[in-house]
């Protein structure tokens, strides 16, 4: 049994256009803002629009996780970093070596053009064809993704948990003030 969705309706199209447009707009704001807090808020908007796009792809579990992890956890990390390292820059765009960087951006743009051309040209292939039926009724739910995660992907799951532990320990170790630093700060204070 499979749930039949009635193709892309007008409402689907409106939702896609609004979500994709706000995603790209917020992304552009993120890389162009001068103040770090403004860029951070634009990044929150990017995460929310991305979660909406995940939901239109019927990846509901990932959509919820996107909000929780990005707009919750990663954002708090960034806000603390901005609080410690608060410094607005006068010249946000690097001027030294601008030629090389512009060449890099142009190369990326060319790559984007070629890949987009391939995608548009091959849009009738099976992989990207419009599928109006869900493969299984519970596609993208927490239960079915979790079942896959704990059966076929058990080793990557455990490995990523170890990686997160290592990252937490490394974060504490790196961000702690060292002894020489503390002495210099005390010397500067008196």
């Amino acid at each position: 049994m499979s749930i039949v969705l009635a193709g892309p309706t007008l409402l689907d199209k409106i939702a896609f256009v609004v979500l994709a447009g706000s995603l790209l707009g917020f992304a552009l704001l993120t890389i162009t803002r001068k103040s770090a807090v403004g860029a951070l808020m634009a990044l929150v908007g990017t995460s929310c629009a991305m979660a909406g796009l995940y939901a239109t792809l019927s990846a509901h579990f990932l959509a919820v996780l996107q909000i929780l992890v990005y707009a919750g956890a990663i954002m708090v990390l960034f806000i603390f970093a901005v609080m410690i390292v608060s410094r607005d820059e006068e010249h946000p765009i690097a001027l030294r070596g601008l030629f090389l960087r512009a060449a890099g951006v142009l190369a990326t743009g060319y790559l984007f053009y070629r890949l987009a051309w391939i995608v548009v040209y091959e849009r009738r292939t099976d992989v990207l064809a419009t599928t109006i039926t869900l493969p299984i009724p519970e596609y993208g739910s927490a239960a079915s993704v979790g079942r896959l995660l704990f059966s076929d992907f058990l080793f990557p799951f455990e490995a990523i948990s170890l990686l997160l532990l290592v990252a937490v320990v490394a974060g504490v170790l790196l961000a702690r003030p060292t002894r020489s630093n503390r002495r210099s700060q005390r010397g500067g204070g008196t």
Binding site: L57, S58, A59, F61, L62, L65, Q66, V69, Y70, A73, I74, L77, F78, F80, A81, D126, V127, L128, A129, T131, L134, P135, Y139, G140, S144, V145, L148, L149, D152, F153, P156, F157, I160, L163, L164, V166, A167, V168, A170, G171, V172, L173, L174, A175
Partner: peptide, 30 residues
């Protein structure tokens, strides 16, 4: 691609990428 292929393994890999992004942000910001 996972939606197009009707395969949920893409969801699992996206989940792992999310955890990886959290670890990368923690170490990078530190």
């Amino acid at each position: 691609f996972a939606r197009g292929l009707g395969d949920q393994r893409g969801h699992v890999v996206a989940f792992l990428v999310m955890a990886l992004a959290a670890a990368e942000a923690a170490v990078g910001l530190a």
